[in-house]
Design a protein around this nucleic acid. Structure first.
Lengths: 220, 220
DNA sequence: GCGAATTGTCAATGTCGTTGACAATGAGCC
DNA sequence: GGCTCATTGTCAACGACATTGACAATTCGC
């Protein structure tokens, strides 16, 4: 009767599943239980919990760049798709997102992502400096949108709608003398899907970025 | 010799100081030591640590809307200033930012911030729907930029530059066959100040938002 | 098969948030 | 001043957690 044999892959797999199934932080005890193994067996394969989280985050990011349309077809559509996927990955894994934000794990998938974005931005006609600045801008917006939406995204759609409605009415019920504009626009806040709002933001940002293409109407 | 007497204000003050001085999470033991008091004395004034953090976050956000230029002077400059301050507040307090992100605390200072942004966006000529969408976009970018920069911002400037250089060289040292664009643009990545990069992103986003003003050249 | 490296198990440690029993303090009242 | 009583600091303890070191079972190179 062999004892359960672990591998890094098995552990990462189990951790990823556990993470996507709950918003809470993962515990080594849970991990051990799922794997049918003593919680501390884990330390034979990873230096500490942080190392595990890093490995899992890489696995999650792998979904961002797979099967993208070939380069040079439509740079803007490709950028939107990448950002959409990146956002989805962050929204689905808030605890990991926290890690990824705090500093590039500099994993293979992160490099793929950066390369692809830079390629597209260069294809759009941006100069090197503008391309990298635009890259940072896109990442910041995408990550921010995900961070804000992560908490709610875990809940079922109707609970989410209820929460949005609660927030709207918080603004609606303010003192109209002090907050006239908030009261008047309350109904429009948090309107629709969080992903639609992200789409709008991304469109605006890309419009602005397109303005930095040499020869475009509004380039400075 | 009276024992040290605590108040909510004293605790919030001490916690805020402690938080801005370190990136790490605050511990009740530290708090007790700073206040010269048993760590558990805290529980006579707050239900739990979470309640304390919420109180501190409100205090931090109060810096965002004070002493702004009067409305209707230059909407774009005012929006930039608000976003800059909001970003600074988040960057300086990563642990709190995490809380604020996850859902509007709906405090007085948060309402002030929203009202002021919406006023400016309406003054810019945006329709109600576009104004609220633009509001969300601005918040998402600002918060994202802060989240990414928070970890490094705590370190002294030269350590920060070193870290940026380390990241750049990680891209520079990639296989040129696989990552040609990353290698070529590595020197431009993470260039300059994080706040300058944010400025660029904000400018792009505001350009795009300005395009939604009815009558503007590129309005759809 | 034999010895050595791997790898799971178990007991223990340290940190942390939180709780409950207890004691010192201070305010109101006589 | 002395009583009552609520407030608030103190202390010991608990449970959850990550991590470590000693030990034992397994597996692999030879």
């Amino acid at each position: 009767m062999a004892r359960a044999r672990l591998t890094r892959e098995l552990i990462v797999e189990a951790a990823a599943t556990l993470l996507t199934e709950s918003t809470d932080d993962i515990t080594l005890a849970q991990l051990g239980e799922v794997l049918g193994v003593d919680p501390t067996a884990f330390y034979r394969h990873f230096r500490d919990k942080d190392a595990l989280m890093r490995a899992v985050s890489d696995r999650i990011l792998s979904a961002v760049t797979v099967d993208l349309p070939p380069p040079a077809s439509d740079w803007r559509a490709t950028v939107v798709e990448i950002c959409r996927r990146l956002r989805a990955a962050h929204v689905g894994n808030p605890r990991l997102a926290e890690l990824v934000r705090s500093g590039p794990p500099l994993n293979r998938n992160e490099f793929d992502l950066t390369e692809r974005l830079l390629v597209e931005l260069r294809a759009a006609g941006l100069k090197p400096k503008a391309a990298t600045m635009a890259y940072h801008a896109l990442i910041e917006l995408t990550v921010g949108s995900a961070a804000i939406d992560a908490a709610l995204a875990a809940e079922p759609p109707d609970a989410r709608r209820q929460t949005y409605e609660r927030w709207r009415s918080a603004y609606r019920l303010l003192d109209p003398a002090e907050y006239p504009t908030s009261v008047r626009l309350a109904g429009q806040l948090y309107q629709g899907d969080a992903e639609q709002r992200f789409q709008f933001a991304l469109d605006c940002l890309l419009d602005g970025i397109a303005g930095h293409v040499p020869g475009s109407a509004r380039s400075t």
